[in-house]
Design a protein around this nucleic acid. Structure first.
Length: 504
RNA sequence: GCAGACGUAGCUCAGUUGGUUAGAGCGUCGGAUUGUGGCUCCGAAGGUCGGUGGUUCGAAUCCACUCGUCUGUACCA
């Protein structure tokens, strides 16, 4: 056969994935659990579209009229730039601003959805991924931030991660205070501040020594590539390192207060941290769940006050069994200025985002995701005769099972190869096959084949003739008993599976 | 973006200093078995050696560029 010279190559864009049935079901289950917690806390859903005008996302580059390279952008008919959303917070701010007169503040809301980032993909890093956010709009006090941290913790509990995570809380104002304290205040030092913050953010990756290098001259990585540092002097580095290495906030609070003493920002930030600590403490959340940690740096742009992120405290391994630095599975903070960009009036807000895709990877590693085996594959009604009348009977049998709440399908492939029908059922992990040929029909009977039990028996049978003729794990029942017997066999299989899982 | 490693059948990989017609295992499909999954046996399909250009009598092999994957790093609003 002549080959088509230029066959179209089927290929997935890099950084994107197709999702399997098992993945989709696992995600749905996770989202369900998260939603339950949010609803329980009195939050309501809202949905915004995947596209927004680029200016509403705040993603235009300062000097040119082109969007930031990190967002996927297209131009509309009227040449206006539109972008795929890169998070769920900016679109929410737009929605709230646009409907500010109708929305009753404080507005407690949640939403899940895909976001897109045009960045280099890697293992566990995609260009499309799902986030599940919750936000409190119009709530100025730190009690709103404290509540967010508690809800975050409760959500992770609900996902089965009790005792295996920690919510770390910091405050942008404290970071600013420290910067001022080491003489990096003012607009002229904005770039250096950014470099310092980024260096602090690398603490879990490179450790104290690596951060020290990044704060000073710079650091060389394994491939020999050199990263320029912030160029701080020894005294400045020491203060920053002291700050980020605070492990017990309770013990170091005074020293911290002293460090930021000259800064109004710093003072107020420390006060807010103290308040949050007191609030969550009295609500019953100890330091093992919500902890003040001055090394938390995130969302360098729009966060204005408390920031928080969730970190898993167990080791995550990849498919190759190697330990990987997992980082955070979600985080958030206060963004008091974001909505004001649209409305011109102060609308304080705080919220957080859970990285659903990332968290799912972690849960998979923990075995906390129910395996796909819990989903019941359909019962297969096999086809022995292909004439319209016979097909009608098989179709009716299938509908009878469905009407009884049993997942069922009739074989739709080439019915003439009966062996293929069972092979199909086997590969599809069907629990049962329903068989009625002319012999059974004449007797008013139906054969029900237990494919799981049959598979088990196959180990004991070595020769094919016996295997075929013994028709293992096959039950012959009267037509009227079809539904009852199927249900009984399915229940029995489910019971066996449960017992097996229990034993292991 | 920068640096490095790697691209051979659907998958995992062999392929000698550059040398005839590029192989294996697994998987797929067909048959043994027209009404019974698994096992076994027999057979078949499947490749522009990632792509383009160059060196050479001759390239999967050497060189350049390009695309893709992986690792590190930067960026991540």
């Amino acid at each position: 056969m002549a080959k088509t010279p230029n066959k179209l190559k089927a290929r997935l864009p890099r950084g994107f994935v197709d999702r399997s049935a098992a993945d989709i079901r696992a995600t749905d289950e996770m989202i369900g659990k998260i939603r339950e917690v949010y609803e329980h806390y009195g939050f309501d859903p809202v949905e915004t579209p995947l596209f927004e005008y680029t200016d509403c996302l705040g993603k235009f580059l300062p000097d040119t009229d082109r969007p930031n390279a990190g967002v996927f952008s297209v131009q509309d008919d009227d040449e206006q730039w539109m972008s795929l959303r890169y998070d769920l917070t900016a679109p929410l701010a737009r929605h709230v601003a646009e409907n500010i007169n109708e929305i009753q503040l404080p507005y407690r809301t949640y939403r899940a959805g895909y976001v897109f980032r045009n960045e280099k993909p890697g293992p566990g890093r995609f260009r499309q991924f799902m986030q599940f956010d919750a936000d409190s709009i119009g709530a100025p006090g730190v009690q709103a931030d404290a509540e967010m941290c508690m809800m975050f913790a409760d959500t992770l509990d609900a996902l089965g991660l009790k005792g295996q995570y920690i919510i770390r809380v910091n405050n942008r104002k404290v970071l600013d205070g420290v910067m001022e304290a080491i003489g990096l205040g003012g607009d002229e030092n904005a770039e250096t501040r950014l470099t310092v913050l980024r260096a602090i953010d690398k603490l879990d990756k490179f450790g104290t020594e690596g951060v020290k290098l990044l704060l000073g001259e710079g650091r060389k990585d394994e491939s020999g590539d050199f990263t320029k540092g912030a160029g701080l002097n020894a005294d400045q580095i020491e203060k920053v390192l002291f700050f980020v290495s605070i492990t017990s906030y309770a013990e170091s609070a005074e020293a911290l207060a002293e460090l930021v003493a000259g800064s109004e920002n710093g003072r107020s930030g420390v006060a807010e941290l103290n308040d949050i600590r007191a609030l969550v403490e009295s609500a019953g959340y100890g330091e093992d769940r919500i902890k003040i940690d001055p090394s938390v740096v995130r969302g360098l742009e729009y966060y204005t006050g408390p920031v928080y992120e969730a970190e898993l405290t167990f080791d995550v391994t990849n498919e190759k069994g190697e330990k990987v630095v997992f980082g955070s599975v979600g985080g958030g903070g206060r963004y008091d200025g974001l909505i004001k960009r649209f409305t011109g009036r102060d609308v304080p807000a705080t919220g957080f985002s859970i990285g659903v895709s990332r968290l799912m990877t972690a849960l998979k590693n923990l075995g906390k995701l129910s395996s796909s085996s819990e989903v019941q594959e359909p019962v297969l009604v096999t086809v022995m005769d292909g004439d319209i009348e016979a097909l009608g009977r098989y179709q009716k049998m299938t509908q009878t099972l469905r009407a009884a709440g049993i997942r069922a399908e009739m074989y739709q492939g080439n019915w003439k190869k009966f062996g293929n029908q069972l092979k199909y059922a086997d590969r599809r992990n069907c629990p049962l096959a329903i068989i009625q040929g002319s012999d059974e029909r004449a007797a008013g009977e139906i054969q029900i084949k237990d494919l799981i039990e049959g598979k088990r028996l196959s180990g004991e049978i070595t020769d094919n003739v016996t295997w075929r003729e013994s028709r293992p794990a096959q039950h012959s029942v009267k037509e009227a008993e079809l539904v009852a017997t199927v249900r009984q066999l399915l229940d029995q299989q489910a019971e066996d599976t449960r017992r097996q899982n229990g034993d292991n």
